[in-house]
Amino acid sequence: MILKDLDERDILNGLRALLAEKGIADAAEIAARIAATDAANPGQGAAMVARAWTDPGFRALMLADGTKAAEAMGIPMRGLPPLGVLENVPGLHHLVVCTLCSCYPRAVLGYPPFWYKSAAYRAKAVRTPRALLREFGTELPADIAIRVVDSTADYRWMVLPERPAGTEGWDAARLAAIVREGDMIGVTIPSV
């Protein structure tokens, strides 16, 4: 391994200086990119879910083409991997993992959480998924089948959870407030 004697913070210092010197990326550009990336957050995905729960046309669009649905919500998707949406239905629950690295639907959920990138999560999701869900406090009834989605290539996947009982008559804003990050990866289930 090269640069073995350098700390990673020093490597970053070197990279930052050289990228600026070569005109590849300057400080302002990096700051702008950080700001744009920080702006993506699970509230965006939650707004999509809530709209799908209240607008059948949007739900159909979201399931057919997640990228177009995200764009319809004003989420920038240009140049990003296509977004696929996995529909939880009665009796079938989806769980997303990337066993090879940490592919995550960042455009609609923001940075991947720490647990999603962990070796334990990546190892367990495909082998002991029901027990893994219990670590997140999710007890899935035995008659609900689990479909694990290993995100290995060019798509990014989010889960469209089922609308929980007890939310009849709620508007989209109120519904969006109950949808959490983990609900859209499948480690948790929205509830009221």
């Binding site: 190892a123 367990k124 495909v126």
Partner: peptide, 8 residues
């Protein structure tokens, strides 16, 4: 890492 015993 899918299914790797040491992380289970």
């Amino acid at each position: 890492l899918g299914g790797v015993p040491r992380f289970l």
